[in-house]
């Protein structure tokens, strides 16, 4: 019996993971089951990150292993799986700011925790946030920013949501290097997250997940 894919991925043993996946594929195992195990492994990675057992290098590495697994498995997939998602989140770094490390970590953590994240990237114009909220009907919005100028961009983005009549339909969280409760009040956001775990906790709370 091959080693457990869930555990091996959670332990970040890249080579062993790849061997397991290859042998399971050649043994005719259901590709969907392989991906499901990989997803479970990533869930453990997320938990270990949340409990400070893992740090950013470990997250980055796990993402890289998952990408390689997906590449191996994808050609064998006949149908795509629709796993149930906890909720939609629109996410991006606000206008004028192109920092992405913090944003990417929160997006990653939301993703492994079962959210469907629409990542708009960096330097996102206010209107693009509004359009994506309307298009997806996402009830949760995350605004990221590293520079002090992001405070104003966040405020403007939230004001644009008001002007477009979508502010009442969403909960907005903000985060980034210099973000605090004072900045939250200034921007009119609903909450701020000190780190990625706080962001996930907020999203879960807002989505009504325990």
């Amino acid at each position: 019996m091959a080693k457990d894919l869930v555990k091996t991925l959670a332990d970040l043993k890249e080579q062993e993971v790849m061997e397991i996946v290859k042998s399971r594929l050649s043994a005719g195992d259901d590709p969907l089951k392989i991906l499901e195990d990989a997803r479970k492994g990533m869930e453990i990675v997320g938990k270990r990150f949340a409990s400070s057992e893992y740090f950013i290098p470990d997250l980055v590495y796990s993402g890289e292993i998952l990408r390689a697994v997906t590449e191996l498995v994808k050609p064998k997939l006949s149908k795509t799986t629709e796993s149930k998602k906890l909720g939609k989140v629109v996410f991006g770094t606000v206008a004028g700011d192109i920092h992405d490390i913090g944003k990417d970590i929160v997006v990653f953590m939301l993703d492994v925790n079962g959210f469907e994240v629409y990542d708009l990237g960096v330097d996102v114009p206010v209107q693009k946030f509004v359009e994506k909220i309307k298009e997806t009907g996402a009830p949760i919005v995350g605004l990221s920013g590293f520079l002090t100028l992001a405070f104003d961009s966040m405020k403007q983005t939230i004001e644009a949501m008001k002007a477009a009549g979508v502010r009442d339909k969403v909960k907005v969280m903000i985060g980034g290097g210099q973000i605090s409760e004072e900045v939250r009040k200034y921007t009119g956001a609903d909450a701020y997250g000190k780190d990625a775990m706080a962001g996930v906790a907020l999203a879960k709370q807002w989505a009504g997940v325990k």
Binding site: G96, I98, H99, D100, I101, L147, L149
Partner: peptide, 18 residues
């Protein structure tokens, strides 16, 4: 880098393109 008026707004600070 992106610098003011060259990749970011003329009113923003320069920022690194990783």
């Amino acid at each position: 880098y992106s610098w003011p008026g060259h990749g970011v707004s003329p009113n923003a600070s320069y920022q690194c393109n990783e």
